[in-house]
Design a binder for these strands. Structure first.
Lengths: 208, 208
DNA sequence: CTATTTTCTGACCAACTGGTCAATTTGAAT
DNA sequence: ATTCAAATTGACCAGTTGGTCAGAAAATAG
């Protein structure tokens, strides 16, 4: 017990840090594709380059890996929504929200898919989080939108359904990427077209 | 080999018909919740009331059940889109399309979830169908929308992205039902509000 | 009734599953 | 160099998985 323990005991070793990162990075696309039950620990171990036993030394259960992956996703998932502020300009704020969600779908579709898979499965892990923090945040942001409507800065719409529309349309490009890529013939313009279309339908249509 | 064979050989017995139906009905919600890999044949057998061995007498592999379930869904999934006709009224036609998709999400969310799960997994089974029949149908209907635009009956928008928006927003109420139900405090008005919001954002915004 | 086909069952199996464990190797601090 | 914790390994295990099989039971046809 030297004074270095203060840091050493709590500070996770470089090896641990690196290996946990490897594991989570390897698990993300697997959970995205096969879901929790469909992904095997062998798969994750092999993809991360560690032996199964060694991987289970860092995460004792498959669920622990899944939970860690989901936690990382949640933070990213909620962050853009936090930005909606009542004192901002509705058009600007909503467009910015759509853009950041769209960017997330383009750049890390796997994260969106893991989240989708979890909800599709009935949210066994995230249920508590949904009815707690997420619900609070959504309530607050619905109030912001409602305020814009009351001020006459936005045409009347049910705020919750506007949020649903933003989520579903933007995440569609990640969750249904397989289908989108097959049906779309102009891959270069995909996200540009998506952006313009969504701004038109979800924002312009609501301006007074 | 009597003349009755003509019909008897092809006509499936009542027992077979009934049991296959039981199996598919039991499999649908399971595939919807756990996906293909996450659902076990034991589960399906138990839910259908047949012994596992007996069930595998009707469908020799789990994949055969999955394929049969998916085929049934596809027909329902595509049917409303067929209805879009260039000679109809854009507003009326688009609203009707949204309504029928919304109704499907309300009344058989499991079907939508199985489809979503399949696409999420990279469409290993449906891939060929997507790049064949579905792509053809979508091309044709995009042409219809484009025609409306050229005629000045609809404001300019990328037709494919309009379809994506309709699909994603309507199916959201089925695929993300868990989350929707948690966040929504007015279950009675849910689909009424959804309908009004989507008509406003996806249709009214595109009228000249 | 008899013969044939369809339906159904329980026992069985090999492969895979998530996870444990004792023993060994490696790294870091003194 | 020594010590001690951290990291790694392969062997192992009990439960589950999808699927088979020989034969019993039931339906159907002649």
């Amino acid at each position: 017990m030297t004074d270095s323990d203060n840091t050493a005991a709590r500070q996770r070793s470089r090896i641990r840090e690196a290996n946990e990162q490897k594991i989570l990075a390897a698990a993300l696309p697997l959970f995205a594709q096969y879901g929790f039950r469909g992904t095997t620990v062998d798969q994750i171990a092999q993809a991360s380059g560690l032996s199964k036993a060694n991987m289970l030394y860092y995460f004792r259960r498959k669920q622990d890996i899944y939970l860690a992956v989901l936690s990382g996703i949640l933070a990213v998932w909620l962050e853009p929504l936090q930005q909606l502020q009542a004192d901002g300009d509705p058009e600007e704020q909503l467009c910015a929200y759509i853009d950041s969600k769209l960017l997330a779908s383009e750049q890390s579709p796997d994260a969106s898919r893991v989240y989708a898979s979890e909800i599709l499965n009935g949210a066994p892990i995230l249920r508590e989080h949904l009815s707690g923090p997420l619900k609070e945040l959504v309530k607050a942001k619905c109030a912001v939108i409602q305020q814009w409507i009351n001020q006459g800065r936005l045409r009347p719409i049910e705020p919750l359904h506007l949020l649903f529309a933003v989520w579903s349309t933007t995440q569609h490009y990640a969750d249904f990427k397989t289908q989108v890529d097959i049906l779309n013939d102009k891959p270069d313009q995909l996200f540009g077209d998506a952006r313009a279309s969504l701004h038109l339908m979800l924002v312009k249509s609501l301006l007074p």
